[in-house]
Write a protein that binds this DNA or RNA. Structure first.
Lengths: 351, 351
DNA sequence: TTATAATAGTTAAGCGCTTAACCATACGTT
DNA sequence: AACGTATGGTTAAGCGCTTAACTATTATAA
């Protein structure tokens, strides 16, 4: 592989001049510039990014650290869309994505692996499991970071910017809850993600409880169950809820896949969705439209989340934009056919 | 960030010794080794991969170049599974994946972008659009390569190993065709991928034609149509085929998604699958089981393809295994409910 | 006892690039 | 004529690491 000396020799200039030409530094004559460019072309030269990066420059690589294991990650349409958004923007800028997932044992490994390389201009992390230490390290190295998720709790005091981007989980959940209540539902089951896992889920729960409270309904812990975001787990989590008596007339699942699992469970129990049970999801993945019945859900645009994160990151990298605390992307409530008026309420009304 | 000098100073040794300890070179006393390790730990030191890579060593990054645009890539379950396989193995080895897709205009950009960085120990490329030049470059740099796809045509003469891994497309397609013929089908429509796009598709077509030939059936070009692997394109491609008269009694689609599109088209035309029309897909993506009716298809394990490629690549990187020409992974024919005996033939038999 | 080998550590060059500091012109000003 | 200054180019140091070559010590064999 030709290096900068080969080019310099061929163009009969110093390596410094070659470097200047390549970085568009002024004060190089048209003539010399052209000679260098010709030499570069003839030799098929392209600068070693490793060397470049050693001198403190760009690597043209951004990291994307997602603290899940690959098997899970690649089965999650939401995350995939998110990655797609990031990759699309990176692609436009001619950047490569350094992709890092976690080993089963240790979610943090996704971050450390990327950091250890030190070979990125910036990094996008998913959710805020990432705690103090890696965060500090990043600051020291000057590697820019954007998080898809919520700011760390202690971010405020530290005076650092969180650069967090997330959907408006609270309002999304609130809206869904309002919808269900306005349909007459009073006992609304919830399928949450893993307990204490993501701030986003806490926010959704907060939205749900707030919705209840606003209508004078009490939160019943018995109606809350947990899944791990897979369809199967939604199926599992729905069963005990649907066997409660009195049975909830609606289920609000904190993602679509679990909602789909819940619907399957309802069907198996001989319940008709939405006649006997209303179901609301979250995310609006592609499958939601095609589901039977088409799923009422809260849309958050994963692609947009990824794109926004990437754009912001590039802004930070190029010192074109200021660090920020958080950016909240609006959600949109999509009514399809998995929700209907509460049968009991209908009866009551007919009374 | 601490560097190797900081560690050396703290451990009261030379940087060479630190380096030796870190690379497990022998001839360092237990005592010294421990001192160095302690220093490393206390300082939170981790060697700069950029510098390491400059001296011709490992980067602990492998590239994955897929010459499609991100939007397409992330909607293709087959490719995603493939990536998952690669990432899983990389993950196990504590390697990062440098992920590169193509810009719409130029499929080759996926390769060049990775190569330009020069920052990978090896690279996995998808399909053999990758022609001469990048291939040569790779050889020069000593970056190992494995292709998921078929060897280049000129690979043999050049004496180079192709390191190609692919499924047994020919036999898979042959088996599917045999199956349809044995069910009495004589006019079997085909939905191919884009023309002259991938060797794999040529092989599937060859399998199809060979199947026909073996049973004395002639290949009818009118029964061949093209899609771009998306469901929608399958839908579009099926229409003209199903409006032919006499109408084909079966359709063999070269991937599952297009097969699903074809089924939708058939339904819209009032045809019952499999009663009026048999449909066979290729890949056996997850959705195939859940389809209505469940899809008869040829299973190729995308995950295994990705895993094998990654394993082989690591073998080459570590000089543990020899370059190879090609590895062929078997396919498995999965009969579900989208194929049935040909109605016309049934009538004939009843005669 | 001495030559040889194994062990333990150091020195210093070099990987390919960028950039501050420097030098040399040529031009417009006063 | 003398000076500042914009322009075009070079020199050389240094980024953080590895490793060949070397030195020094100790154990082993002849």
């Amino acid at each position: 592989m030709p290096n900068i000396y080969d080019v310099a020799r061929r163009a009969k200039v110093s390596t410094a001049t070659v470097s200047k030409v390549l970085s568009n530094t002024p004060y190089v004559s048209q003539d010399t510039r052209q000679r260098v460019l010709d030499a570069v072309h003839e030799l098929g030269y392209s600068p070693s990014l490793a060397a470049r990066s050693l001198t403190g420059n760009r690597t043209f690589v951004i990291g994307l650290a997602i603290p899940y294991d690959p098997d899970y990650l690649f089965s999650d349409p939401f995350l995939l869309q998110l990655i797609c958004g990031v990759e699309g923007v990176a692609n436009e800028r001619d950047y490569n994505l350094l992709f890092s997932t976690a080993r089963q044992s240790d979610p943090r490994s996704a971050y450390t692996r990327i950091l250890r390389t030190g070979y990125v201009d910036g990094v996008i992390t998913y959710e805020s499991i990432m705690s103090e230490e890696p965060s500090r390290q990043l600051e020291k190295t000057g590697i820019k970071r954007v998080t898809i998720g919520y700011p760390l709790q202690d971010a405020e005091n530290s005076g650092h910017f969180a650069n967090a981007i997330h959907s408006d989980d609270y309002n999304g959940a609130l809206e869904a809850t309002n919808h269900l209540i306005s349909l007459g539902h009073r006992r609304i089951g919830v399928i949450n993600g893993p307990a204490n896992f993501m701030v986003a889920m806490d926010e959704r729960l907060r939205g749900y409880r707030e919705g209840l409270a606003k209508h004078g309904l009490e939160f019943d812990p018995a109606l809350l169950n947990y899944g791990d975001f897979t369809m199967e787990s939604g199926y599992q989590a729905a069963r005990p809820l649907l066997q409660l008596s009195p049975r909830p007339s609606a289920i609000f699942s904190f993602n679509d896949r679990m909602a789909l699992g819940a619907i399957r469970c309802a069907k198996e129990l001989g319940l008709n969705v939405p006649r006997d049970l209303s179901v609301v999801g979250f995310d609006d993945i592609e499958m939601a439209v095609a589901a039977e019945p088409p799923l009422t859900t809260i849309r958050q645009s994963a692609i947009e989340l990824g794109q926004t994160a990437a754009h912001k990151l590039f802004g930070l990298i190029n010192n074109e934009s200021e660090p920020f605390d958080q950016i909240v992307l609006p959600t949109k409530f999509i009514v399809r056919s998995s929700t209907a008026p509460c049968p009991l309420t209908v009866l009551t009304n007919n009374d």
